[in-house]
Simulated scan of single mutants.
Amino acid sequence: MTTTVKSRLSLAVVALGTALLAGCTATGPSNLRVHEVALSGGANQRIAWVYGTLSGPSSSLKLNGNTLEVRPQVQDDLSTPGSLSVNGKATYQVSTASSAQKLSVTQDAAGRFNLTAMNSASLLAVYYTDGTNWWKLNGISGTVSATPSTGLRGAGQLTDDEGDALARALDGQGSLAVAVLNENPTPLSVEPKPTEHRMTSLYVLPGIRTTTGGTTGTVTMNPGSSNTGNSRPSAPAAGFTEVARGANARVDDPTVRIATTTAELGEIYRLAYGNQSSPPTPTPLNNETAVAVFIGQRTTGGYGVRVERVVASGGTLNVTVAIQAPQAGMITTQALTSPWVLVKVPGVFTQVNVVDMAGQPLP
C-alpha cells in the first residue's frame, strides 16, 4: 500500500469519526431552560425541570454528562405545565451527598415556632407542613408565627407551578420544615447551553416536635352523617372525628389501640407522641370511644394512614383505613417514620376490627 493510499484511508477514518461525534451531539429543544432545586437534609438530591420547544416527537440533551431523551411531559407529582419529560420521567433526578444539619425547629401548643440556624447556615425563608397543609413562617430566627401558604410558592427561584409540585411530592410525610438557603451550589452541566438556568437550594427537616400540650387535627365525617350526640352500642356509629395524625410514633409494629376512658386515651397519646419532649394532654372522653391505628416503623417518609369508614355492629367498631405508600419517583425524606391516626366515635364500644381498603385485617 502506497503512502498516498494510507493518507487517504487515515483522512477517511478521521472524517467518519468526526461524523459520528457530530451525530452524538445533544441538540436539545429550542428555547431550552433548566430549573434546578438542590435538596439537602431529610432528602438529598438534585431535581431539574427541563423546558423548551420540541421540533419533533423527541430531542436530546446532556445533563450532568448524561445524554438524555426529552419528550412531551408525563403526569406525576412533579410534572409542571410547559415542562418536558426526561427519559420518561417528569424531572431529572440525581442523589447527592448528605450535609450537616442547618436548621432546628420546634412548635409549641399555640402554633408558634422556634427557629435556630445551625452550622453557619444562611436562611432566606422557612416553610412548614403538617403533612397536609402548608404555612410560611414569619421570620427566620427566634420565636415566630406562621401564615398559611400555597405549598412552596415563593421559595427561592421556583415558579409557582414548581413550588406546588414540590409541595405535592412532600405531602403525606408528616411534619416537615423546609428552609430556603442563601447558597449557590454548582449547577448541573447542561448541553446545549440553556437560555435560562435557575437554582434553588432547600433544606428539608423532618419530624418537627411539639414542645408543649395541645392537639390539632381535622374533622372527617362518614358521608351523610353527623358527629354530634351519643349513640347506643347496638346502633351504627353516627360518624367519626379525626382527632390527630402523625408520623413519629413510638411504635415499631402495626398496632390497633382502643380507649373508652381518658386514662386509656393517655396511654395512646404516650405511644403516638412518645418521641416528642412533652406529649399533648388528651381531651377527656365523654361517652366516646377512641381508636388509634399505628402502621409500624418505616425506613423513609411517604407513608401514612387515614380512616375512611367506621361502622358499628353491637359492641364492635369496624374500621376501614387507607394506607399510603411512596409512589415510584416520589421524593421521600430519609428518616425513620411510624405513621398513625387517631379517631373518636360517639358511644362506648369494647371491640374494634380494622381492615385496609382491600379488606385485609390490620395488624
Rank of each mutant, 00 (worst) to 15 (best):
G274N: 04
T255L: 15
D252W: 10
I208V: 14
E242A: 08
K102E: 12
V345E: 05
E191Q: 15
D253A: 15
V310W: 04
L78I: 00
A237G: 10
T211P: 02
I323K: 11
E191M: 13
L16N: 03
F349P: 10
P254R: 12
G301K: 03
L115S: 02
T320Y: 04
L317Q: 04
T27Y: 10
V219Y: 10
T53S: 15
S313G: 11
L188T: 09
T96G: 05
A165S: 06
S189H: 09
S79F: 02
V352A: 14
L84N: 01
K62V: 15
T200V: 07
A90M: 04
R232C: 12
P233S: 11
R306H: 12
I331R: 03
G151P: 00
N119S: 12
S40T: 14
A237P: 04
V256D: 03
G28W: 00
T218P: 01
Q324V: 11
A110I: 00
G28S: 01
G274T: 03
G111C: 04
P236D: 14
S55T: 14
I140Q: 07
R298Q: 15
N222I: 04
E264T: 04
A155P: 03
T4C: 05
T218K: 11
D160R: 11
I208Q: 06
S83W: 00
G156K: 07
T53H: 12
G217K: 00
F113N: 01
A109N: 11
G329W: 01
